[in-house]
């Protein structure tokens, strides 16, 4: 249990140092979960965890004691294999006890291998890539219909944007001017088989998103000062949907997992690797 496990109420303004401590704890849980489950996706969880930490602790209007709050900000983990990251941060934020994390991928647990709506705080099930942005668009349209001010954050993997569903929705969101829709691309440059550049060259993603009619910004997805700057940009009054490109490192924080596809979908191979990961993260 970390000292943040019981944080209730609406999101506060934590310092960068505090956020760093929280993300460190979340990284530890990610490693413990996949090692305990002997399966799972640590690489893409470690690349997105700093951004999730910022969103859930500093940015989003949410209340763990009232999960159905009508005006709550929504987050969709479209890259549903990063379930360890989302589950860890939801537990740390107080949506459910951190003790439940060790049930990840086990038969009697709600913590399905890929993100599952039955878990407290989860807005929609995901796992098959490319669908979350469309769901986010639907939620953003509903907010406008209901004159609600909530925002919808959608976390995309970079391999994920190879899916056609993404680009269909990029066009539609531009048509409907859903300025309350904020896509965050986890640009870690590695997908299951290989580097994204080798599997499917993506060209200038920033220019592509802009040409589809989105406001675009790039930032460092591991630097809380830069993350803060990106979401301040996203919060400005505007007409267009927002596409944030987070430059990240796959497996960030565990040297042997960084910048490789080997740990996209594999846990530490043995006790030695497990302990090395915890040590490098600085687990206590």
């Amino acid at each position: 249990m970390g000292e943040y496990s019981g944080v209730a109420g609406k999101t506060a303004d934590f310092s960068n140092d505090t956020l760093l401590k929280i993300s460190k704890k979340a990284r530890e849980y990610i490693i413990r979960m996949v090692y305990e489950a002997k399966s799972g996706h640590p690489g893409g969880s470690l690349s997105i965890i700093d951004i999730l930490t910022y969103l859930y602790f500093n940015e989003m209007n949410i209340d763990p004691t009232d999960q159905n709050l009508a005006d709550r900000d929504r987050l969709i983990m479209s890259k549903g294999h990063a379930s360890p990251a989302l589950y860890a941060i939801l537990a740390l934020r107080g949506f459910f006890p951190v003790e439940l994390l060790m049930g990840f991928r086990k038969i009697n647990s709600k913590l399905e291998g890929h993100v599952h709506r039955g878990v407290p705080g989860v807005e929609t099930s995901t796992g098959s890539l490319g669908q979350g942005l469309g769901i986010g668009l639907g939620m953003a349209l509903a907010a406008k219909l209901d004159s609600k001010s909530y925002r919808v954050f959608v976390i995309l993997g970079d391999g994920e944007i190879e899916e056609g569903n993404i680009w269909e929705t990029m066009m539609a969101a531009s048509k409907y001017k859903t300025s309350n829709l904020i896509a965050v691309l986890d640009r870690n440059r590695v997908q299951l088989d290989d580097l994204t550049e080798n599997v499917m060259p993506m060209g200038d993603i920033s220019a592509k998103a802009a040409s589809f009619g989105w406001d675009v910004m790039e930032f460092n997805g591991h630097d809380f000062r830069d993350i803060r700057r990106a979401f301040a940009f996203a919060s400005q009054k505007r007409e267009k949907p927002v596409f944030l490109i987070a430059n990240t490192v796959k497996g960030k924080g565990v040297s042997y997992m960084e910048n490789t596809s080997k740990y996209h979908g594999a846990p530490p191979a043995n006790q030695e690797e497990f302990e090395k990961a915890l040590k490098e993260i600085g687990a206590t």
């Binding site: 807005e123 929609t124 490319g130 669908q131 979350g132 942005l133 469309g134 769901i135 986010g136 668009l137 639907g138 939620m139 953003a140 349209l141 509903a142 907010a143 219909l145 209901d146 919808v152 056609g164 569903n165 269909e168 929705t169 066009m171 539609a172 048509k175 409907y176």
Partner: peptide
């Protein structure tokens, strides 16, 4: 205001419908 012509983009249409339904529609 409650009708969305999503263009010839069925995947986008179905996922957006899911998002609307998840928001009480």
């Amino acid at each position: 205001e409650r009708f969305f012509n999503m263009g010839i983009s069925e995947q986008s249409m179905v996922t957006a419908a899911a998002g609307l339904a998840l928001s009480g529609k």
